[in-house]
C-alpha cells in the first residue's frame, strides 16, 4: 500500500473517508453511551436500544416506514422493469427518446420539486394523505432508479435468446416470463433493494406526502431532533444505518458477482 501510494494520496484518502464517515462513527459510538447526555461518555451500554422497544411512537413510525418501503419498492420494481423492457426492446416507436428522457428526469429533479408537485396532485384529486400517498410518491421517484439498473442489464442481454424462445413456441409474454425474467432476476432484485433503501431514508418527499397518521422514521427522527438529540435517536439511527448499509452492500454484491457471473456464463454459453 505504502509503496504504491504517495503520502499525498494517503492523506487525501484518510481525510476523505473521515469527512464521509466520522459523523456516522460518532453517532454510532454515542448510541452505546450509558449517559443521558449525548456528548458525555459514561461507559458502554445498550440500554437505549432496549428503550426503543418501549417507545410506541418510534415503533409505529418504523412499522409505517417498513410497509411503505416494501410496497413502494415492489411497485417501483414492477413498473421500472416494464419501462426498462419497453425502452430497450420496444424498437423505435414514436416518442421513444422523449419517453426515456422522461423516465430518467426524476433522477436529477430536486426532491423538493418532486415532493411539492406530488402534494399539489394529491390535493387536486382530493386524495387524503397517509401511507398510500407516501407509497405512491416513493414509487414515483424510485421507479427510475430500478429502470436504470434493469435496462443496463437488458442492454447486454442476447436478444436471440428471446427469439429462440419465440421460435420454440412461446408467446411473447411466455418468452419474457420463462427466459428474460429468470436471467435478469439479479438485476431486478438489486433494483428492488435500491428502491427499498431509497424509500427507507427519504425525508423530503415523505414529508410532503405524509399525513398526521402516517409518520415515517426519518420524519420522526427529524422532528424529535428539533427538541434535542437523545441517545435513543442515536440508537435508532444506528439501526437504520445498519439496514441501509446491508441493503447497499447486498445490492452491490449482487450486481458485482451475480450479474458478472451470469454474463460470463452467457458468453461462455454462446461463444467458444
Amino acid at each position: 500500500m505504502n509503496r504504491s501510494m504517495s503520502w499525498f494520496n494517503v492523506t487525501s484518502l484518510t481525510l476523505g473517508f473521515a469527512f464521509l464517515y466520522l459523523p456516522m462513527m460518532i453517532l454510532i459510538f454515542y448510541s452505546f453511551n450509558a449517559s443521558k447526555l449525548v456528548t458525555v461518555w459514561a461507559g458502554f451500554s445498550t440500554k437505549w436500544y432496549g428503550e426503543l422497544l418501549h417507545n410506541k411512537q418510534f415503533l409505529d413510525a418504523a412499522w409505517v416506514t417498513l410497509r411503505v418501503g416494501v410496497m413502494s419498492s415492489t411497485a417501483a420494481t414492477i413498473l421500472g422493469t416494464m419501462a426498462a423492457y419497453v425502452m430497450v426492446r420496444g424498437g423505435r416507436f414514436f416518442g421513444r427518446t422523449l419517453f426515456s428522457g422522461m423516465i430518467y428526469a426524476p433522477l436529477v429533479m430536486p426532491e423538493v420539486i418532486t415532493g411539492l408537485s406530488l402534494l399539489l396532485l394529491f390535493i387536486a384529486i382530493g386524495l387524503d394523505r397517509g401511507i398510500f400517498t407516501i407509497v405512491l410518491a416513493h414509487t414515483t421517484f424510485s421507479m427510475c432508479y430500478v429502470s436504470v439498473v434493469v435496462s443496463s442489464r437488458l442492454m447486454t442481454f442476447d436478444r436471440s435468446l428471446e427469439e429462440a424462445a419465440l421460435d420454440l413456441g412461446c408467446s411473447p409474454f411466455d418468452a419474457f416470463k420463462s427466459v428474460t425474467l429468470p436471467i435478469i432476476t439479479p438485476a431486478v432484485i438489486s433494483g428492488w433493494l435500491l428502491a427499498f433503501t431509497l424509500s427507507l431514508d427519504d425525508l423530503v418527499i415523505a414529508s410532503f406526502a405524509s399525513g398526521p397518521s402516517s409518520t415515517t422514521l426519518p420524519i420522526k427522527i427529524f422532528s424529535a431532533v428539533r427538541l434535542g438529540v437523545s441517545p435513543e435517536i442515536n440508537a435508532l439511527s444506528t439501526i437504520m444505518i445498519g439496514i441501509v448499509a446491508t441493503g447497499v452492500i447486498t445490492t452491490s454484491l449482487i450486481s458485482k458477482n451475480a450479474i458478472r457471473r451470469q454474463r460470463q456464463e452467457e458468453l461462455e454459453g454462446t461463444k467458444l
Partner: peptide
C-alpha cells in the same frame, strides 16, 4: 403466422441456449 406458430425451427448463429 407469428414465429411461435410456424412449423419451422431455427438453430441460431450464436446457439442462443438458455443459460439458466
Amino acid at each position: 403466422i407469428p414465429p411461435n406458430r410456424r412449423p419451422v425451427n431455427m438453430m441460431f448463429q450464436s446457439y442462443a441456449l438458455f443459460p439458466h
